[in-house]
C-alpha cells in the first residue's frame, strides 16, 4: 500500500513538474508578444533613417544612432512641450488631491441635510457621457477668457472629480469615527480634523489618486486639442500628434520621441506599482 501510494505521488509530481514547465513556457511566449511592440519601438528609435525605409522588416539597428534622440528633442520641440506637460500635471494633481479630499471628507465624515441626495447626484454625474457637456463647457470657458490657456484644463480639477471623490470617500469611511470624536472634544475644528487626522491617515489613498491623475493629465489629448491653439502651450501628448501629421516619414524621430514620452510613465509605474494596483483593484470591488 505504501509503495503504491509513493509511486502514484512520484508520478503526480512528475506530471506537476511537466505542467508547470508548460505553463512557464506559455507565460514566456505571451510576455514576449506583449513586450514585442515596445521593443520594436525602442529598436526603431535607434535605427538610422535609411534603414527604416530601405529595410523595414529588419530587427536590429545596423548601427546604433543615439543622435535620433537629440534630433527629436530639437525637431519636436520636446523640451518646450515637456515643460507644458509638467505644468499641466502638477496643477491638475494639486487641484484633484485638494478638492477631492475635501469633498470626500464632507461626504464621508460629516452629517448634513441633503448629503444622501447630493451623493446620489455625484454618482449620477459619472454616468453622463462627456459629449453632452463638451460644447457648452467650451463656450463657457471661451467666454471666461480661458481659451488657449493651460488654466482651461487645470482649473476644472479644482472642482473635484466624481470618481476620485467616491474612491476617497470609501477610504475615509474606513477610518474609525472615535478618532474624530476625540479630536472634537479636544476642540479641533472640522478642518483641523481633516488636515491633522484624516489626511495623514489616508496617504496611500491620496497617493493613488495623485498617481491616477498624473497619468490622466500626462496622457490627455482631447482637452489640449479643444482648448489650445498656440504651439507654445502644447503639452507633449498633443504636440507629439502634431508632429505625426507633419513628419510621418521620420519614423526614427517619431519613435525616439514616443520612447521619451512613454518612459516617464513606465518609470512611474515601477516606482508606484503598489498604489497603482491597489487603486485599480479598488475600482473593481465597488
Amino acid at each position: 500500500m505504501k509503495i503504491v501510494l509513493g509511486l502514484s505521488m512520484a508520478g503526480g509530481e512528475m506530471n506537476n513538474q511537466r505542467k508547470s514547465l508548460w505553463r512557464f513556457t506559455l507565460l514566456i511566449v505571451i510576455s514576449a508578444l506583449f513586450m514585442l511592440p515596445l521593443v520594436l519601438m525602442l529598436l526603431a528609435s535607434l535605427k538610422p533613417a535609411e534603414q527604416l525605409t530601405g529595410d523595414p522588416y529588419s530587427l536590429l539597428p545596423e548601427r546604433v544612432v543615439w543622435s535620433n534622440y537629440q534630433q527629436a528633442l530639437e525637431v519636436v520641440p520636446y523640451l518646450k512641450y515637456l515643460a507644458n506637460s509638467i505644468v499641466l500635471c502638477l496643477g491638475s494633481v494639486l487641484g484633484t488631491v485638494v478638492s477631492c479630499s475635501l469633498v470626500a471628507y464632507g461626504f464621508a465624515r460629516l452629517r448634513w441635510r441633503g448629503r444622501k441626495a447630493m451623493f446620489a447626484v455625484l454618482i449620477a454625474t459619472m454616468l453622463l457621457p462627456w459629449h453632452v457637456t463638451m460644447i457648452p463647457r467650451f463656450v463657457l470657458f471661451s467666454e471666461l477668457g480661458l481659451y488657449n490657456q493651460l488654466a482651461a484644463i487645470i482649473l476644472p480639477t479644482f472642482l473635484g472629480d466624481a470618481f476620485y471623490i467616491f474612491m476617497l470617500r470609501q477610504f475615509f469611511l474606513s477610518i474609525p469615527e472615535e478618532l474624530s470624536e476625540a479630536a472634537r472634544l479636544d476642540g479641533l475644528s472640522e478642518f483641523g480634523i481633516y488636515w491633522r487626522i484624516i489626511v495623514p491617515l489616508s496617504k496611500p489613498a491620496l497617493v493613488t489618486v495623485a498617481m491616477f491623475q498624473l497619468v490622466v493629465s500626462w496622457n490627455d489629448f482631447s482637452s489640449p486639442l479643444l482648448y489650445l491653439s498656440d504651439q507654445e502651450k502644447f503639452p507633449l501628448a498633443y504636440g507629439l500628434e502634431q508632429f505625426v501629421s507633419s513628419y510621418s516619414d521620420q519614423t526614427h524621430l517619431l519613435m525616439a520621441a514616443s520612447v521619451m514620452f512613454t518612459l516617464p510613465m513606465v518609470f512611474l509605474f515601477f516606482v508606484a506599482q503598489k498604489s497603482f494596483t491597489r487603486g485599480i483593484t479598488m475600482t473593481g470591488s465597488k
Binding site: 511592440p37 515596445l38 520594436l40 519601438m41 497619468v215 500626462w218 496622457n219 489629448f221 507633449l236 501628448a237 498633443y238 507629439l240 500628434e241 505625426v244 517619431l254 519613435m255 514616443s258 514620452f261 512613454t262 510613465m265 513606465v266 512611474l268 509605474f269
Partner: peptide, 11 residues
C-alpha cells in the same frame, strides 16, 4: 501604461 498617443503612433 503606454500613453494612448504613443501607442497610437506605435501601432
Amino acid at each position: 501604461m503606454v500613453p494612448i498617443v504613443a501607442s497610437s503612433i506605435l501601432w
